[in-house]
Write a protein that binds this DNA or RNA. Sequence first.
RNA 1: GCUCCGGUAGUGUAGCACGGCCAAUCAUAUCGGACUUUCAAUCCGAUGACUCGGGUUCAAAUCCCGACCGGAGCACCA
Length: 502
Amino acid sequence: MNRLSPEEIRERGAAFPRERAAKKEKTLEDLPLSERGAVKLRFAPNPSGPLHLGHARAAVLNDEYAKRYEGDLILRFEDTDPRRVDPEAYEMIREDLRWLDVDWSEEVLQSSRFDLYYRYADELLGMGAAYVCTCPPESFKRHRDAGKGCPCRDKKTGHEEFEKMFNEYREGEAVLRLKTDLSHRNLSMRDFPIMRIVERPHPIAGDRRVYPLMNLSVAVDDHELGLTHVLRGKDHILNTHKQTFIFDLFGWEKPQYIHYGLLKIEGVMLSTSETGQGIKDGRYTGWDDVRLGTLAALRRRGIQADAVRRTMVEVGAKPTDISFSWKNLYAMNKELIDPHAKRYSFVESPKTLTIRGCPEKVVKNPLHPVSDMGFREIRLPEGEVRLLIGKEDFSARAEGDVIRLMGAYNVRISSKDQSGMEGVFHSMELEEARRMKAPLINWVVAGEDVPVKVLSPEGERHGAAEKALLHAGKDEVVQFERYGFVRIEDKNGAVVAVFAHR
RNA sequence: GCUCCGGUAGUGUAGCACGGCCAAUCAUAUCGGACUUUCAAUCCGAUGACUCGGGUUCAAAUCCCGACCGGAGCACCA
């Protein structure tokens, strides 16, 4: 994916001014125990790839609350697993957030705080609340499931053993465990691990081998950073229990935890790791492949960041699982772009239509039916005229039909074969066409057409657009009449347009 | 299986903590009409939901119990 500057992102994404106010905005529920100016939140992605629709929910909701309460939002990269860090992802995530108009006041890399986690681990060791466990996993589980401590639990040499994790034990041979309740009804709560060995340097922090597990690093940071509220998916509920256990050990004041439900998104690949794999073996063209649910793909298609934001705000932070609806997102997006999108004629998989007996006609169609954006002008000569019409319009018409060429005149189809149709001029006036219930069809002058490649999630389409399309700017979102909204991606050579929705 | 959570129209959402004003809100979707040189937008109209069963109560979407359905977690990932 190309690297974009913040300015470019704004241009590309926020092509249109944000229009709120227009309608009553759905707003979020109040946060519990919150005070204006005192709220501190965080968005904490794992930098293994760019953000997708699922992340957008957490990002937007946190940002909305931070803004509402004039609080702070911290961007915290949870990069404590060296195997799951893509160094490129940090900047991709920042780009996505800037596009979403998410403002963060502080950025934290957990990979720059390992010493802090070691210190707290030491402290837990000193408190007798943690121990180094060298049992094979199966053996530990046997003891745990029986409600008993493993043999390592009562070792007196905690600090020395911990030392050995840094220079002696190999990966998989030892972990640091927290002493919890061995009779806890949830097995995974019993003496859960907080540090482990990974014999691999960290892509950012370099030479390390002892890494904290999230429940330690997250608890430490949520406390150290003074968070008042933690907004996260319900898949983290058990982690919340584990983390509050650590808060209690240290006697820290806990933030308010809010868990929202699953966001089921149909028809699109969201898994970051699978997508990354797919890019590697060529199934996807990149993180912004139009078939993906990444924010990069959405903005490439001309989906406005504000449409994503509004959708997420409407969905809210309740614990119920919800089915994300593309239709609702598209409707929201259309509301934003329709007032600004210039109209152009485009015909897919075109067929020719040759008309005889035409009077000269200068067609002057507005670039927008409502807003005053100027016109596009086409001169149709007297006599014979050759046009291109879309394949669908072509197959829907039969000999003898009368059609209205939008902005021009009415034509009777005189013959039709595989390659095209022929027709004769019938009449000029729109009223006449209405009287005959003739369908309105858009067209492009053959020979003056611009070839267009349309990239859509359903595949690649080819067609022709009127020449005036060349006046549209790169990255501009326009509407192909009777076809749908697209973002103009490339104008060098054949035009490439990325399809958003109808 | 165990632990926890949740179930309002096709989809999303309001209402549920303090039961009556809820024959249930708003948006979107679908259908129909008006307008219109786009199958867009706009305007008008229609369709459509409290998962089920018991209980408490004069009164339940709202409280209680059970069933059913859905989900999450049960890692040396986050």
